[in-house]
């Protein structure tokens, strides 16, 4: 091999292949490692005897799907499941017309901290939405709140199963799943039957990047600039001979 491979103007064909390979392989490896991030689930034991349940979380074709299995002694009584994600600061804005153009105004008295993602499921066709809540409406519209009636599949034997597809925007953090009995019984609105929890966390390359970006922000920024300059330069080198 020629030692001055990078510093010489070589004839087409000699430099092209390794450079193209390098560029694409680097990106391919980064993507593959990034794909390999996993969600971990840890389930706690049920705290109410009436319902046995189990949670499994998995990544299927890029989407995080939470699966809840369980059994109840009273399959006739409708149950409700609530998934609550980690809290985030939120700001609600209202668009107001001023001088003919739309202006966003922060709404006073709106919730300041809400779960970044929430899901409500039921085994029967029970109205889950709180009608008239304009903030809730906005959250449902943008997919931050999932309303899924009849999403819990209840067997006559009392075994039940539910799948909750979390949107790509579902953040890392601790998640909680609560199972309630629907308020079929007069005064009691809902009775909590079981509680499970799991955590979504980043692993591998993804965790490295997000931790690096936080802990070594300046260095991370320098790396970003270097990557950009190197990518631009390499591509130009690669395409230079291609004519």
């Amino acid at each position: 091999m020629d030692k001055h491979l990078w510093f010489q103007r070589l004839r087409p064909g000699l430099t092209r292949a390794p450079l193209v390979m390098m560029t694409f392989m680097t990106v391919a490896v980064a993507m593959a490692v990034s794909l390999a991030f996993a969600n971990t689930a840890r389930a706690q034991g049920p705290d109410v005897a009436a319902v046995e349940s189990e949670v499994s979380v998995g990544l299927f074709s890029g989407q995080t799907i939470v699966r809840v299995f369980g059994s109840t002694a009273t399959p006739d009584v409708p149950i409700r499941l609530e998934l609550t994600g980690p809290d985030r600061d939120v700001s609600f804005t209202r668009s107001v017309r001023r001088f003919g153009i739309k202006v966003s105004e922060v709404i006073d008295g709106a919730p300041q901290v809400i779960p970044a993602i929430r899901a409500e499921l039921s085994s029967a066709d029970i109205p889950l939405r709180r009608d008239g809540d304009e903030f809730e409406e906005a959250l449902i519209r943008e997919g931050a709140v999932l309303i899924m009636p009849k999403a819990i599949k209840m067997q006559p034997t009392g075994l039940f199963f539910a799948e909750i597809p979390l949107p790509p925007s579902a953040p890392v953090g601790d998640y909680k799943i609560e199972i309630f009995q629907e308020g079929a019984l007069r005064s009691v609105a809902k009775v909590k039957l079981a509680e499970e929890s799991f955590a979504i966390q980043q692993q591998g390359f993804v965790a490295l990047v997000s931790r690096g970006a936080k802990d070594y922000a300046f260095l991370y920024g320098l790396i970003c600039v270097l990557v950009a300059v190197a990518a631009g330069w390499i591509t130009e080198r690669v395409f230079r001979n291609r004519r």
């Binding site: 609600f92 153009i101 739309k102 304009e134 903030f135 953040p171 890392v172």
Partner: peptide
């Protein structure tokens, strides 16, 4: 700017990079 979108919008302020 001229045509109104949804009346109420929201944004998570400490979402990206500051979780």
């Amino acid at each position: 700017l001229l045509v109104g979108g949804p009346a109420i919008q929201f944004s998570f302020t400490n979402g990206a990079g500051h979780g």
